[in-house]
């Protein structure tokens, strides 16, 4: 694992897989949207509103996945001081915040016609909103200090501590009565999924598309972060040289 902490090696691998990720994201997204919007049946209760699920559920998964990735990168940065880990955590935050925002908005638009309310303060919705605030807090904290290293360390601690919210989101619908429905997937039940196969196909395609989209944007953002770190180093060296000349 530590072999990959070298930014030059990371860039070499990232640049090699990037075009494949772009192609995969484009194809999966196109196929997923086609099935989600046109070639899948309406639901017996929700009618065509069920199509909101195909964007809502993948973005909820990605909101949690990105946070987990951010917490793992932050822990690696705190423990082993890999600069690349910090950089990847910082690059992940806005992507995860975006997915979480899409999840909250799409869920709200589904909630009004189905439940009769845009928003309720049940355990699932509240813990998901907290996830969104954790992302915002992380980004604010990482940029709050003049010295980027200090801000990064404080933000990394927040990211790792905030990880306790992830199991709370996942199990909120099992631990407490919520208005939000429980998970449609189960590892242990005889029937693993309560979603009809014709609806599982667009959901799976959209989930994969969101996953490859994350890695694609992560590489783009990481490249930009590495470039800006290089610029910072050069500027510092210039300031040093100018200061030393006097």
């Amino acid at each position: 694992m530590h072999r990959f902490a070298n930014p030059a090696r990371f860039l070499r691998i990232a640049n090699a897989v990037y075009p494949w990720l772009v192609a995969a994201t484009f194809l999966l997204m196109a196929a997923g949207l086609w099935f989600a919007l046109f070639d899948s049946p309406p639901d017996y209760q929700q009618g065509d509103s069920v199509r909101i699920m195909y964007i809502h559920v993948p973005s909820a998964w990605m909101g949690m996945f990105c946070y987990t990735a951010m917490a793992v990168f932050s822990a690696m940065a705190l423990i082993w001081k890999h600069p690349l880990a910090d950089l990847l955590a910082r690059a992940t935050a806005p992507i995860g915040a975006g997915f979480t925002f899409v999840c909250l908005v799409s869920g709200s638009l589904w909630g009004k016609p189905m439940w009769g309310a845009y928003w309720v303060w049940d355990a699932r919705l509240t813990s998901m909103l907290i996830l969104f605030f954790l992302y915002l807090g992380y980004m604010a904290l990482a940029n709050a200090f003049d010295d980027p290293i200090r801000g990064q360390k404080a933000a990394a601690i927040l990211a790792v501590a905030g990880f306790v919210n992830i199991p709370i989101i996942k199990f909120s619908v099992d631990w407490w009565h919520t208005l939000h429905q429980p998970s449609s997937f189960s590892l242990f039940a005889a029937k693993h999924s309560d979603i009809a196969p014709s609806m599982l196909l667009p959901l799976g395609l959209m989930a994969l598309a969101c996953q490859t989209y994350y890695f694609m944007v992560l590489i783009l953002r990481a490249r930009a972060e590495i470039a800006s770190a290089k610029i910072r180093t050069i500027r510092m060296a210039q300031v040093h040289a100018a200061g030393g000349g006097e």
Binding site: P41, P42, D43, Y44, Q45, Q46, V50, M53, M114, W115, G116, A117, V120, L179, Q181, P182, S183, S184, D194, I195, A196, S198, M199
Partner: peptide, 17 residues
């Protein structure tokens, strides 16, 4: 004073039902 419908976790087309 307020009624909310609770949806379950089942998703399927009308034909299957």
């Amino acid at each position: 004073t307020e009624i909310l419908a609770k949806h379950d976790q089942k998703y399927m087309p009308p034909q299957v039902v």
